[in-house]
Computed example of a mutant assay.
Amino acid sequence: MLTYIALIVALFFAMNIGASGTAAAMGAPYGADAIKSKRLALTLVALSAFLGAVLGGGEVVKTIGEGIIPSDILTVEIVIIILVGAAFTLFLANLMGIPLSTSEVTVGSIVGVGVAFQSLFTGKLIVIISFWVIIPIVSFLITYILGVVIKKAEKKWSFLTGKGKWAKWLSILLVIGGCLEAFSAGMNNVANAIGPLVGANMISSSNGILLGALFTSIGALALGGKVLETNGKKITQLSLLQGSAVSFTGGTLVIIASVFGLPIPLTQVTTSGILGIGTAKDGIVTLQKSVIKRIIMVWLVSPVASLVVSYLLINLFIKVNGYNILIIVCTLTFALGTIKLSQIVRNERRNLHDSGSGI
């Protein structure tokens, strides 16, 4: 019974992965009208993600399944806790409107279990966290350089801006870039849902990847429309060539990371790429403090939130420890209270300032 529950939760998680990060891969082509049909855009995403997972998802599955904590810890109950911890954190984040990375949330949930059992492969974990920082920075630098080149080229040759007969070919290039990004998402992110099952020997790696890829594709087709609309509207200010630079850079970097078994946050890689292009296009003003804060918040909140949830679930249901639960509840209460208090103080200061402004 528990095995079926674990499988259902994993496949539901895979559908949500397809609906969120994977569907966003086609945002640039859809937003720039390189591909006008939403259904066609989602179909291309689904096929690309499926192929990415089936052809190259094995190494990341191995890392998620046995590279962060010893696989002998992974019982059916622990797998359910890892998946529920990650999925529940994503659900809460969606309610609050905070975008989280599925890769970071899954790794955080696994680390929470490792901390509870005091058994972690810290070396591998340090490498993963390091690349969470390194790859977005590399994405920014590459797209910045490409952005400078594209800006000069578009000034010199106006047809590169997507006007006239070249619009069709530049549109096709952008769609290919979106497919590459979706391929890389399938390669990297399907492991988040399937890896714990494979690590616990509940399903073989090949069957797990096939099922995960299938449900990720279903999620993209059935639930990805809203994400596609939102993401497309956010990046319509990019030209066809600039959008291609972002997609090809992000997709290539995530594919390289996947080959080495590193779970990487595609959303942050893509966001950093957009920032790189934007900085080359509009200058340092693109690097607004609010955008940087948002990236840092996602980077910090994603793994820490799921770590706390999975650690709490372990102490509630597996290693029942009232003291640890009390400490966690008190810490969360203190953190939330501090945030709320700081908001009240800011509002009071703002009200005082507004009241005095007319004197």
Rank of each mutant, 00 (worst) to 15 (best):
L11A: 14
N16K: 11
G27E: 06
S37W: 08
S37T: 05
S37C: 06
A53M: 13
G56H: 01
T63L: 10
I69G: 04
L74I: 00
V79F: 12
I81A: 07
L83D: 04
F91Q: 01
N94M: 07
M96Q: 00
P99W: 02
E104C: 12
S109L: 00
S119D: 03
F121A: 12
L125W: 06
F131D: 05
I142G: 05
G147F: 00
G147S: 02
V149A: 06
W157H: 14
S158L: 10
S158Y: 00
F159R: 03
G162Y: 01
G164C: 10
K168L: 14
L170H: 10
V175F: 02
G177M: 02
P196H: 13
G199I: 01
G219F: 04
K226H: 10
L228V: 08
E229P: 04
E229H: 13
K233P: 01
S244T: 03
S247F: 03
S247T: 09
G250W: 02
I256Y: 11
A257V: 09
A257E: 04
V259T: 11
P265F: 00
T271E: 11
G273C: 07
G283Q: 07
G283L: 08
I284E: 09
S290T: 15
I296P: 15
V301F: 09
K319T: 13
K319A: 08
N324Y: 03
N324A: 06
I339D: 02
I359D: 15
